[in-house]
């Protein structure tokens, strides 16, 4: 099993790498196109800012490579938003796998960014095998993706939004499974088994 974590410098890749090691997977962190294409599983991690991240991906010509991948691909947090068409963060055109856009949470009494543990519901696909409705996952984000036919997990903060997306071989999770205790670990294991 060859798992690749895409290295685009802007992301906090170490925590994903370490979380995989805790389940016995030694992933390769790389920006090498042929290594990415030949991997069994590809993870696009994310802590960072959208326009900065897209510039980094373009600089490595990964903006054309990622949408063409056919193996299971999972974007995490910003990584999920980069799989969308556009992000309001930095007025950024993203990879366009999902037609949805990442929007800033509307100003209400609730705080932005959302930081902390929130529940995930309406779980679909094997990514959530053995995960209970209303399990907590850790989230840190100011931008959200609305509900759509691609939604495979829903979370409420200000509004109901997509905390996970899926289209063909592409998965995106807004939460950080690598930081979400045991429930997060199971989700990572499920992705590896896809």
């Amino acid at each position: 099993m060859k798992v690749v974590i895409i290295d685009y410098k802007a992301g906090n890749i170490q925590s994903v790498k370490f979380a995989l090691e805790r389940i016995g997977i030694y992933a390769t962190v790389t920006d090498n196109i042929s290594e990415i294409i030949s991997a069994d599983k590809v993870i696009l991690p994310g802590v960072g800012e959208a326009s900065y991240a897209m510039t980094a991906l373009k600089g490595k010509k990964l903006d054309n490579v990622i949408p063409s991948l056919t193996q299971p691909v999972m974007g995490i947090c910003l990584g999920m938003q980069l799989l969308c068409k556009y992000s309001e963060e930095g007025d950024t055109n993203c990879l366009g796998i999902f037609e949805q856009v990442a929007k800033l949470f509307p100003a209400t009494k609730l705080k932005v960014p959302q930081i902390g543990w929130n529940t995930i519901t309406n779980l679909k696909t094997n990514l959530f095998k053995n995960i209970k409705e209303n399990d907590y996952q850790y989230l840190v984000h100011s931008y959200y993706v609305e509900l759509s036919n691609y939604t495979i997990a829903k979370t409420n903060y200000v509004i109901d939004y997509s905390s996970a997306l899926q289209k063909n071989n592409f998965y995106g999770v807004q939460f950080h499974p690598e930081k979400s205790g045991l429930a997060g670990q199971i989700i990572l294991e499920n992705f590896i088994k896809l």
């Binding site: 802590v47 800012e49 900065y52 960014p113 984000h141």
Partner: peptide
């Protein structure tokens, strides 16, 4: 820092 890493971190 916010521009580079995102204000959430």
């Amino acid at each position: 820092l916010a521009n580079k890493f995102g204000n959430q971190c």
